[in-house]
């Protein structure tokens, strides 16, 4: 009788042990692909960094095209990732690719803003990454990842506002402020928690910073006459 018990417990531990092993294997595999995604993400950030240079501000459309090209790789990489994550276990491995996904969302949203002056919605960003927006479809772009990623572009924009002034582009800060205000209005509709709440605070700081730039420009009469969105 006692021997049986002992067997039972050992067996339970063995099951747990093999479960941990399997998870570690999958995670390693997932991390390998995440590294590839990271590479793409970094090269996009590097390209985007150029827009803050004096020549960059004039060449934004060219920079955006380069980014789009780089970002087009992402969809293939995500389909790789998708094949590695067992069905129904998306959230088991979510944390391993979460941060990278948010960075890619941020880059995609930034490029879309620079090209079309609007916020790319959830489904559009997901589609560009080759993902669904619905959890029922298995591998998808989590709404919170999208919302957090989209907020991350605010920091870059407030930086761009300052650098645009340095480069002699006085109209851009006014446009950026307008966009950030809209974004702020939209995010105010949410009831953010935890990480999203922190990111939302960043948006407020970015907006404040951009408003300072706009104020300084207005004060010195540098407000371009043709801007309609000056407010």
């Amino acid at each position: 009788m006692e021997k049986e018990e002992a067997m039972d417990i050992t067996e339970a531990f063995a099951t747990y042990g093999s479960c941990v092993e399997r998870e570690a294997e999958v995670r390693e595999c997932v991390q390998g692909i995440v590294k590839e995604l990271e590479k793409t993400s970094y090269s996009v950030t590097t390209i985007l960094e150029r827009m803050h240079n004096a020549q960059g501000v004039q060449n934004i459309s060219k920079i955006c095209e380069e980014c789009r090209e780089e970002l087009s790789k992402v969809s293939g990489q995500y389909s790789d990732l998708q094949s590695r994550v067992p069905p129904g276990e998306y959230y088991r491995y979510h944390h391993t690719f979460r941060a990278t996904t948010q960075r890619l969302v941020a880059a995609t949203c930034l490029v879309t803003y620079l090209q079309e002056a609007r916020l790319a919605p959830h489904d559009e960003v997901a589609a560009s990454m080759g993902l669904s927006t619905r959890r029922e479809d298995g591998f998808h772009l989590d709404l919170e990842d999208y919302l957090q990623g989209a907020l991350a572009l605010t920091h870059d924009l407030s930086r761009l506002a300052i650098n645009a002034v340095s480069a002699g582009d006085y109209a851009r800060p006014f446009q950026i402020r307008q966009f950030l205000r809209e974004l702020h209005g939209a995010y105010s509709l949410l009831y953010p928690k935890n990480e999203l709440r922190k990111r939302f605070d960043e948006l407020k700081y970015a907006l404040k910073k951009t408003e300072e730039v706009v104020y300084n420009l207005s004060l010195r009469g540098l407000k371009p006459a043709e801007t309609e969105t000056s407010g």
Binding site: P121, H122, L143, Q178, E182, G185, A186, L189, L190
Partner: peptide, 28 residues
């Protein structure tokens, strides 16, 4: 106010707001 500047083109504005109302529901 929780609202963007009044000069913004209203159509784009409401599209964005509508989207976020949806997101808000899902998130909640």
């Amino acid at each position: 106010e929780g609202l963007p500047g009044t000069i913004a083109s209203p159509s784009q504005d409401t599209v964005l707001m509508d989207l976020f109302r949806e997101y808000s529901k899902t998130l909640d």
